[in-house]
Design a protein around this nucleic acid. Structure first.
Length: 251
DNA sequence: TCATTAATCGCAC
DNA sequence: GTGCGATTAATGA
């Protein structure tokens, strides 16, 4: 909770608490890892920081000043924004290889979002200044980042449409499909245990609505539920729910 | 086992 | 559809 994770003063070489450097990292989804050949001797990769987060720990606080960007090395997080009456709207879920906090990058001085670890998470933290330096010097890297931003914008525009035009039932189904697409399944259940409230916060409804839709879907044999674990029984049936209204979005 | 926390359900608006 | 409160199930210390 304290601000010590923003501590960028790490004297030595590339060693970290758990020994992952950009060179030894195996996460090929990471933009920086993919461009390592051209970024290898930049100060950016030499001075990155590693941060360990426990489950439930918030590592980005709304309103805090932006000093850099987070890349997820391992684990899953949720990114949210707090609404008027204190209700939180989950903007997206993110997993390894994704970037967090990029919206505040550049002109914004403060984060407009918060981020919480959903499980044990390892993060790579890059300072804003060094990142800007790397972007100015490496057009290819800059281009990759631009594609990432364009893609993110597209997804968030799709989500606006989802929330404003779909019924609650469709939004909940859409959320299940989204989690399924993004995180896959494990032993027949979605590979990401979320509370009903978290489903609600993502789908833009209330916890009760999610429960009601879930129990309806269970009766219809479309999904199964055991506590937090949700299993998809009839993928085609769920997709049909949304396809019928032509709102299916692959975000 | 007891104490919390989360999931459901029912009911009024 | 939404929001509150009571009941019950699940989880953790």
């Amino acid at each position: 909770m304290s601000a010590k994770f923003i501590n960028t003063s790490r004297s030595q070489k590339n060693n970290t608490s758990y020994g992952v450097t950009c060179q030894t990292c195996e996460n090929l989804k990471c933009l920086i890892k993919r461009r390592l050949p051209i970024l290898n001797d930049s100060r950016l990769v030499q001075q990155k920081n590693n941060i360990n987060c426990k489950k439930g720990q918030q590592f980005i606080i709304e309103g805090a000043p932006v000093n850099g960007l987070f890349f997820i090395l391992e684990g899953k997080v949720k990114v949210f924004r707090t609404g008027i009456n204190g209700r939180e709207q989950i903007v997206r879920f993110a997993k390894e290889g994704e970037i967090i906090g990029h919206r505040g990058f550049g002109t914004e001085e403060y984060y407009s979002i918060g981020a919480i670890a959903l499980e044990q998470v390892k993060l790579c933290y890059f300072s804003k200044d060094l990142l800007q330096e790397a972007l100015r010097e490496n057009p290819k890297f800059t281009y990759d980042m631009m594609l990432f931003y364009a893609n993110e914008l597209n997804k968030s525009e799709s989500k606006v449409k989802t929330i404003s035009q779909m019924t609650v039932r469709e939004r909940v189904v859409d959320t299940i499909l989204y989690i399924n697409r993004k995180f896959g399944t494990l032993n027949g259940f979605l590979n990401l245990p979320l509370s009903r409230k978290e489903y609600a916060d993502y789908a833009g409804t209330t916890e009760e609505q999610v429960i009601r839709v879930f129990s309806a879907l269970k009766k219809e044999k479309l999904i199964s539920a055991q506590g937090k674990k949700i299993g998809v029984l009839d993928m085609a049936g769920l997709k049909k729910e949304i396809n019928e209204h032509n709102y299916f979005l692959d975000s």
